[in-house]
Nucleic acid binder design. Sequence first.
RNA 1: GCAGCCAUAGCUCAACUGGAUAGAGCGCCAGACUACGGAUCUGGAGGUUGGGGGUUCGACUCCUCCUGGCUGCACCA
Length: 640
Amino acid sequence: MLSTWKQTLSASLAGRIRDRFGIEHRPVAEVPPRRSLGDLAFPAPLHLARQLGRPPRKIAEELAEGWELPAGVLALKVEGAGYLNVSLARSAFAARLLAAPPVLPTAPEGAEKIVVEHTNINPNKAAHVGHLRNAVLGDLLVRCLRALGHPVEVQNYIDDTGVQLADVVVAFLDLEPTSLADIKAIPEPFDYVCWDLYARVGRWYEEDPARLELRRKTLHALEAGEGERAQAARLIARRIVGRHLRTMARLGIGYDLLTHESDILGLHFFDHAFGKLQESGAIRLEAEGKNEGCWVMPLAESAEFAGLEDPDKVIVRSDGTVTYVGKDIAYQLWKFGLLGRDFAYRYWMEAGLWETAREGAESPPAFGRAGRVINVIDARQSYLQKIVRAGLEALGHQDAAERSVHFAYEMVSLSAATARQLGMTVAEEEGRSVEMSGRKGIGVKADDLLDRLVEKARDQIAQRHRELGRPELQRLAEQIAAAALRFFMAKATTTRVIVFDLDEALAFEGETGPYLQYSLVRGRNIQRKLAGAGLPAALDEAAVAALPEELWSDDLWELVHLAAGATEAVEKAAATLELSLVARHALELAQRFHALYHHHPVLHEADPGLRAVRQAAFQVAMRALAGLCELLGIEEPERM
RNA sequence: GCAGCCAUAGCUCAACUGGAUAGAGCGCCAGACUACGGAUCUGGAGGUUGGGGGUUCGACUCCUCCUGGCUGCACCA
């Protein structure tokens, strides 16, 4: 809503500059720091000062004189060093805002499909808070893109033929021999059992490195997909993936498709890609040196990879197995519909989603064939993601390479205090944080954290609402816990490491998810009370448009102004992949609302005009906040 | 060694990508009409934006050098 004004006024000002000075200039629009200065600011005179060799204020005055402004603009002023500031007609603006969706679908008609890949947790242990950052960011991105009107397909890649799963198979079959039937019978939480086993098998290898031969043997079995080891792997992966999906469902995170690495192998996707890579000369068989017998992709010629110790990347190992990068190139080609092959698909009934298969359903939905691909993968894998892109380029798919986006975010480490709570000894000089390690079994499990949040929320609600029964208490607590966790992950700038601190994550006050929920609950309560007093719970567009302009105080107007910026915040977040902008905008709205709430009573206001303008401002703000909360995966509780 | 990310209040982080007086939360201190719910709000203390130099009307933001921290550069993913 605000951006529409920015565009029209910017275009209008461009015309004015052309008329007055004969210069082509695209004026940028900003929001002035205080509402008393106006609603939109154009620093164009400052930008033009040098070129014209005149003081900016003088230029501003000349431009202001005779600039014909469109209807809906109330005032134009020259401010500060030479800003052109514009004020908008408030009632009309608020009314229009009320009539439109809080986040506008601004994507062009018939926008191309975007495939977003996220979560991608190895199916060999419980999810931890590091995985949560990935899933929360991925899901937030998906919700933003969908709200803006983009068709999106969400894929969750399951590495069910990799080393990590192989290690847990070894743990079950060799370290602590267990029959398939017994593995099947292990009670939940199965992913917790594997968490400990995975750490144990790591130590077991260290005691006798010869045992690593079991890992190699298992890895081959998984790739071949046959025998007891492969069967055990399928069983384990199945159970763990089920657990992961349940954990994510607690946070409202879901997927359209699970892609199995085993199917990429089983359907010979890589063999197909391998042929193409050979033909194009993108890879070569190394006859000597340390990579003897491997198929490698030479990277030396690309400036992007300048200064690498080893300018070649192994794609096929000397024993004939394929590296992760090789499989990922094939997968990436498939996502764009460039591989020339497709998976079969089947519907996983209990989980309620589609997954890849070797043989499958009659007429599954059309997966893949994306116009753009966004892979949500932590920043440590930037190098590998670059190689995948380089692979597409080497195959002549320049366009697909450019449309392959690596959404890189920084990792989550543990604060020294939290690491100590987990029983680790952390020396003072070791620094502020400790890296998590699935291999060593060090980390905060996602479900443990969620359980603690639920418990805390339940205690607090029970104190406030003694009348509530257990099931309702539980439901509310789960909503609040999910909001706290999702907001905690979403508010952090993606390029910064999160130093995870348990006490901080358990907070419900200040800049938190529950704080946002509290705003929504308060807003809703005003409406309830109004209805109870026989007044309309909500105002319609016409009623707001008819409000006399002078009723709007600057602080109430500021709230409406902020609400109008919601769409722009979401657009910017999706375009730059700095998703914290969504969280910050929602937070700012809530903060402003809470502050006004105390000074602007609605129900207890005798003057009907004042009451209406306050109601209108709050209604507009709550709509925008609710819209942003939906994107953040934060639900509005009945009470809290 | 090469590459990427980071450094802002005691702590955790913002600052519309070069703009107006660098803002929030936590913590600390002092307060809020028997309330549209105190998971809230108001006020206060707290800053040479890691350091030096440069670019210009204007720098937390861009360039350069330096310091300190994290990450990556596997026939692991």
